[in-house]
Amino acid sequence: MADKPTLTFAFMDPPYETGRTATFFRMLDISARRGYHIKVFAYEGAVALPFSLQKAHANSVHGRDAAEENHPLPKDWVASLMAEAEKNGGSLNWVNCGLCVDERGVNAAIDGVSRGSPSDFWKLAAASENSLVIPTR
């Protein structure tokens, strides 16, 4: 476990509104495939990423029903990356900023997501080989 690096990410963007979200998840994906130990501190709108009540929908403009559309849900990305990291000997520890969750009412999160505070971000970053913050612009 100690031979693979630990990386901490802080991320602020909510689902869907910016291209940064997919880019952030691509970095997590590479890290998970390499079996890294990944720590995520989700801040502000990013706490909605693992919100468990997200629902896929049909899209009449595309002419597809819900099953065909297979609309991307960030909560599924988080779950998939947790599994991918574990499969490769790594881990994905996702911490949601608790106050950010409360003010948005997105308390329901998928399994494996924990509630924390900025002090957790500091501790995670201090225990990591490196860290990256990706803020909303």
Partner: peptide, 26 residues
Amino acid sequence: SAYRGTIEEQDDTIIWLSHAMKGAGA
């Protein structure tokens, strides 16, 4: 990035984050 949610959050979120982390010994 300035004035990002400052009205809604009643502060700058990163200055607030700095306060909170400083309180944790950062």
